[in-house]
Design a protein around this nucleic acid. Sequence first.
DNA 1: GCCGTTTTCGGCCCGACTGTTTTCAGTCG
Length: 629
Amino acid sequence: MRPPYSPARRRAFTCSLPKYTTGLFGTSPHAVSWIFPPHLDYNRPGYSIMMELHMTNQELADVFDRIANLMKIQGEMVFKIRAYERAAETLRALGEEASAIAARGELTSVPGIGKAIAEKIEELLQTGRLGFLERLEEEVPPSLLELLKVPGVGPKKVALFWKECNILTLDDLKKAAEEGRLRSLPGMGEKSEASILAGIASLAQRSRRMTLGRAWEAAQRWLGWLRSQAGVERAEPAGSLRRWKETIGDLDLVIAHRDPVALMQAFTSHPEVARTLGQGENKSSIELRDGARIQLWAQPPESFGALWQYATGSKDHNVRLRELAQKKGLSLSERGLLDEAGNLRRIADEADLYAALGLEWIPPELREDRGEIEAAARHALPRLVTLEDIRADLHCHTTWSDGVSTIEEMARAAIQHGYHVLAITDHSSYMGIVGGMKPEDLPRQKAEIAAVQQKLGDQILLLQGAEVDIRSDGVMDYPDEVLASLDLVIASLHTSLRQPREQITARLLNAIRNPHVDIIAHPTGRLLPDRSGADLDWQAVFAALQEHGTALEINASPSRLDADDAHTRYAASLGIPIVINTDAHAPGGLHEMRFGVAVARRAWLEAPRVINTWETHRLLDWLKQRGKR
DNA sequence: GCCGTTTTCGGCCCGACTGTTTTCAGTCG
Ligand SMILES: Nc1nc2c(ncn2[C@H]2C[C@H](O)[C@@H](COP(=O)(O)OP(=O)(O)OP(=O)(O)O)O2)c(=O)[nH]1
Ligand SMILES: [Mg+2]
Ligand SMILES: [Zn+2]
């Protein structure tokens, strides 16, 4: 990853890449390295790349978050700061690259991006720099940003420490606290000084964001504990977990309870607790030994709906909802709806809250302020795809490559899931003799699939596919005649994910243009929660997928969730077929389908967009159209 | 800085908890 703000690299290129490059099985990768000339266009009419440098939406968003934080320390107007923060969120959710929108001159038509921010985006895209930020950083030392990360330390205190004690770094702050120099500052005391030291310590060993899988496991344990406690009438997940966001910062849990004081005490003195961050009668917060944090809120059952809605968020969704309430002369909070006369209407059922504001109930996965409130007001929310809609899994592994179960075991597990189709897609040989399948193994595997098929009869249809590696030179790991012999071909990147944008994009495009390839799996190769994926030119990838009708995979593994919600939503809007696959390496892996479905739901997808919800005959027709037998 | 079936100017979510206060500011969710 590049640092959040650094001048982008200058590039220009103009040549052409072959329509697709035939795999030359058995030859050295170096023999075909010519497919990456220094200059290329993507062989599309009108798609001559004159891109001079590039910043991803994520990188642009990081710039605006940085501006917002520096302005907070500076003491700038809060509403201006909110505008930068909202713009950052908008950019992260776009899917389409901001550079493409800028090229059309349409940045200001994006909600939350006005004239000032659009100009800054354009300056960043054209020059890789931003004068406004450079001047801001001369006024406010950027090293102060690390102080903001200390829990309990906000912009006011950072400014105070900076101006009164010349504290510029985390080390400065630690030293000042240890020497007792903070307690005499206005608004500070011994306790707050000690809590800063504790905050710095926890920052050092604080764990990063969790994967959804880990978070749900922990949440189920804690919900079980809560439900076993006296007086708990209901306990439910909330926050990013309930919205199925791709990674989880902390566990947010809510309970219905009439007198939660004793329960809050039990919660903060649970044996797994390393530190109590706060304890009151309405909410408490703890940090566990492994660094994970849990936030617990309580309201009586008659207010549970309002509480659950609040704690589910997202923050931006909540703010929009509260603004809507305001316009109707109401005031919304976790306690309920307050009318102008000052009467509090408690709300037991979340759906009643949305109804009171004239809205359809909004599925938690949509609550990100990405247009869901407007759609709910028009009663035009999508009918989101569900786990029950899924009829096939088109990506799994067996003992023929790095899976741990046989074809029959995987097939029987798929039947248990109610699937009508399972594609066996073992790895091509790039992983080496042990890991991958050589082309000469394929006929024997085909025979085994046929035998299992005969044994299982019409309970399920088995397809012989393969997950074919796109080699680091862009060549498919199986030659065309081998690809042509398969029922389904998945192509994916596994190696050299750090190649420069144009090079790794060219690899992926080469696979998409290969007429035998049906699905592009885990397109970026990222590994959650920490390892970012390939730096793809998404606009080129979208265009190629659209042109060739190739399906884009949502890989359902909680450590991938790749493609992500934003890119999937935009891809589907272009008509690109979406497939949700588990990439299971054992029967248990098939259970991860629900995480992939969650990504699809966050991408606003209805079932027909997802090809593995289709009836078998329709799926087979699709494959046939793509030249399969 | 953004935005508009109440506005192109004047609004912009709202409450809990903590530690410092002698009535509240700061931080957080
Ligand atoms: N109204 C309102 N609600 C907020 C605000 N900040 C947070 N919330 C609510 C909505 C959030 O989903 C919920 C939990 O806060 P978190 O900071 O844990 O965020 P969230 O769980 O969405 O993401 P996370 O994965 O934890 O980073 O609290 C706010 O400023 N205003
Ligand atoms: Mg959270
Ligand atoms: Zn795989």
